[in-house]
């Protein structure tokens, strides 16, 4: 596979063509904080936490590392003052949006932010609109039972018409992938309740031997 050489924080490295800057940085062991990124899902560049600075001074700019592809000779700074300032403000904004979201609190604390200077409109909000649930439902589960609705002021993740959705199979992947644990998901008395629907839980009756057998069959 063709390789591309680039500079990350002054260190030259070669990575396969088609890698994103985030992947390249990870190969180098550089830690870039992410929120809406998941290796198994297409990146959309929503949260802007993973921004890095590229280019030569003074013509540098910030791009999101989760979507920007490596380019030969590109100069990348992952922790420059410009980058850190942007990350701090992004986290402060997210903290104002979802002040009780544990992950946001933790990410912010890592940057030395313990309280947002901005107004919090809804102290109980947990959703940061990262879109991981929507993408998981669409790309991995393949049912598209939930999506984003409205735009800025009223943007939210929901089922169509805010009603229980026929498309939902109750797999719970959305709740599992959600980084701020906002999707209500209840399991009790042999029932799972999610997105306003109830699913009967059925015990899996495939025996362990059969499972192993089927796995080896697949491998063959």
């Amino acid at each position: 596979m063709e390789e591309v050489g680039l500079l990350i924080n002054g260190i030259y490295l070669k990575v396969p063509q088609g890698y994103t800057l985030l992947q390249a940085a990870q190969q180098l062991g550089v830690d870039i904080p992410t929120l809406c990124y998941h290796p198994e899902l297409p990146s959309e560049g929503n949260c802007r936490l993973c921004v890095v600075e590229i280019g030569e001074y003074p013509r540098t700019r910030l791009v999101n590392s989760c979507t920007y592809p490596v380019e030969p000779g590109l100069n990348v700074q992952t922790h420059s003052e410009k980058v850190l300032q942007a990350r701090r403000i992004v986290l402060e904004l997210l903290l104002a949006r979802a002040p009780k979201a544990k992950l946001i609190q933790d990410l912010a604390a890592e940057m030395g932010i313990h309280e947002s200077r901005f107004k919090s409109e809804d102290p109980y909000e947990l959703c940061v609109l990262c879109g991981l649930c929507v993408r998981t439902c669409r790309e991995i589960v393949g049912v598209s039972a939930i999506s984003m609705a409205n735009r800025t002021p009223g943007k939210l993740v929901t089922t169509p018409f805010l009603e229980p959705s026929d498309a939902c199979i109750g797999c719970g992947s959305c709740a599992f992938v959600c980084p701020t644990e906002v999707i209500p998901y209840i399991e009790k008395d042999g029932k799972r309740i999610i997105w306003g629907r109830e699913f009967e839980l059925v015990r899996c009756n495939v025996k362990l031997e059969q499972k192993l057998k089927s796995i080896s069959t697949v491998k063959l």
Partner: peptide, 10 residues
């Protein structure tokens, strides 16, 4: 604003 990215939306 479409509300997709944090800096613009928030």
């Amino acid at each position: 604003s479409c509300g997709k990215c944090t800096p613009c939306r928030e």
